[in-house]
Nucleic acid binder design. Structure first.
Lengths: 163, 163
DNA sequence: ATTGAAACGAACGATGG
DNA sequence: CCATCGTTCGTTTCAAT
């Protein structure tokens, strides 16, 4: 009927514009945002708040340059874990997120079970992390490491076009 | 000598705390941030500005719930491209980032050359994107798609501990 | 839904401790 | 680094449309 699944929440052109601007710069003042949309600050505030309350906007986060905080080496590590039960998945995920080197964890379907994005000062820190902590976990039956030379994110993700 | 490579920029405990708070909530007011650190607002402002000017803090970004903007299906796609020249790498990366489904691109070393994170409304949109656009590129010699069931990011990344 | 006006709070530069 | 003042600017509420 709507073609977007049950999570679809009406987001009109104005909402989209708000999302676009705030994804690009979370510190835009409400006045400036309103001015860019040709809206009164009060109306703009109502819409932005509604987007947060509906859970469309989930948060605002500062970004740091990893190299400048002493984490120049990035990698993606694909893990296979066994047995593939809910408990094991949850346990590994929790463990991974507790490691200070870990930036993000993807839970996957396909040939690998997890992809873990890490940032460390040097290659030997990565080796130490893998052999001393990750491969000591009993559920880990294998992993493959790929160095990340570059990581670029989209400045802003648009809502999917209406069908 | 310093063990952190040439990008190392002195970040003390107070700076770390600022980075931690602003990664978790980019919209903290300077006053509130200062209060949490037990610092005067004026001093806090000086430090936060310095972190931006030194490029340690690179930006502030709003986050959206992908499902709520009609992009419920996420995947990671590993691409192999040939020949592996600078121009080809740059060209593919630029192309990928222009696709509205693409959230992020990783340039890799190892068995795959790129990892592309995408979010689409449905599986058939993903299929269409791959066959109609990505696999038409001459440099693409192969790819593997893994579904993303979950994607969790660390709330805050700490500076690497001093050696 | 959107608005304007008014009250409140925050940012910021300057000064001096 | 802290404190305070003063100006400017932003936020938020609310009655009205």
């Amino acid at each position: 009927m709507f073609g977007k699944g049950k999570e679809w929440t009406g987001v009109d052109e104005l909402d989209s514009a708000i999302l676009r601007e705030l994804q690009a710069d979370a510190r835009l003042t409400n006045r400036e945002l309103a001015a860019r949309l040709g809206l009164a600050p009060s109306s703009c505030l109502v819409r932005t708040r509604a987007l947060r309350e509906r859970g469309v906007l989930t948060g605002f986060h500062g970004q740091v340059d990893l190299a400048k905080i002493g984490r120049s080496v990035q990698a993606l590590i694909a893990f296979t874990v066994r047995p593939l039960s809910r408990d094991v998945i949850r346990g590994f995920q929790t463990f991974a997120l507790q490691q200070p080197e870990v930036i993000a964890v993807f839970v996957l379907g396909g040939s690998d079970d997890f992809l873990v994005h890490v940032a460390v000062p040097t290659i030997s820190d990565m080796h130490a992390m893998l052999v001393d902590r990750f491969s000591k976990r009993r559920e880990v039956v294998g992993f493959r490491t790929s160095i990340v030379y570059e990581h670029v994110r989209q400045l802003s993700i648009d809502p999917a076009p209406a069908d």
